[in-house]
Amino acid sequence: MDGSNDLKKVAYYPGCALEGTGHAYNRSTKAVGKSLGLELVELENWNCCGAMEVKNVDPKIQTYLSARNLSIAEDMGFDKVMAPCNGCYHNLKKAEYDLANDPKSVEVNERISAKAGHDAYKPGKVETIHALDWIKKAVGEEELAKRVQNSLKGIKVANYYGCMYTRPRHIFPEKDKGPGTESTAKPHFMDDILAAAGAENVEFPLKTACCGGAHSLSDSDMSTKLVLNIIETAEACGAEVIATECPTCHTGLEMHQVRAEKVLGRKTNVKILYFTQLLGMALGLSASKVGVQENLSDSRAFLKEKGLG
C-alpha cells in the first residue's frame, strides 16, 4: 500500500450485511470517514460477494461474484476498494489471489463474464483494503490522537478480529511483512486505532477465534458455545467492551450472547460495539450518529455512564 493521499478517496463496497443487520457498521464507517475528511464513493450497482455460502455450491461462482465488484471499481477509475465487512474483504482478496494463480478460476470467470456481457476482471488492477487499513493508513494514530474530542480513557476493550480478516494467510500477501504491517497471528490494527482514541486495550488471547458465524443458524448450539467462550474470556481479561470489525462476527456475538442466556442460562454483561462506533464517539460524534441504537446489544446506559455519545 503506498502513500496516504490516494486513500483519502476510495471506492466503497458495503456489501449486503451492511444494508441489513450490520447497518450500524455502515452508518458509523461513513460517519467516521466524513469526520476524518475521507471520501467514500460507493460501487455502482454492486452485487453480493458470495459471503460464506456460495463457495459451498461452487467456489468459482464466488470468484465471479467478487471479481464483478472489482471490475466495477476499476471501471469507476479506482485502484483501491474498501470493504468494512470481513466476508466481503476476504472474498475480494481471494478472487484477486485465485485469478492471479489458478488458471481454472480465470477460465470460469472469463466465461461467465462474457455471457453476462461485461469484461472479465484481470488481477492486479484493484487492491482491496479493510476499513482498518483505510483508517490506519489514510489517517494514522498520531493524527487520530490529535482529533480525539471524547477520549475513550478508562474503557477496557477486547479487540476481536474473527477468522476472515487473517485466514487463510496466502490471500493476504501484504500482511506479516514486519513492522507497520498487519500480523495474521496477532492482528493489532484495531488495537492501534482504539489506543490512539484513548481506549485501554486488554490482553485478549481470542482475537482471531471463530464465532461460528458460518453456522450461526444452521448449528446454533455450536455457535452459542463458541461465542460464549469468546465473551467469557473477554470478561475474564477485564474487558467491558468487545470491539468488532465484521458484521457477521458482531451480529453473531450479539445474538448468541442472548441465546446463551436464554438457552444455557449463562448471562454475560460485556458490551459489543463496532470499532467505528467507538472511534466515532471519540471523534465527538453522538451515539445515534454512529448507530448505537441499531445494535442488538444495548449499550446506551453503559456509554452514558462513560460520558460518551
Binding site: 449486503c16 441489513g20 452485487n47 453480493c48 458470495g50 459471503a51 455460502e53 456460495v54 453456522h215
Partner: peptide, 20 residues
C-alpha cells in the same frame, strides 16, 4: 442444515445479485 442454508442463500444471490 448447513447445505440447506447455503442453497437458500446462494439461490437468492443468483436470482437477484444480492441477499436480504
Amino acid at each position: 442444515p448447513s447445505t440447506e442454508f447455503d442453497e437458500e442463500f446462494s439461490g437468492q444471490v443468483i436470482k437477484t445479485g444480492k441477499i436480504e
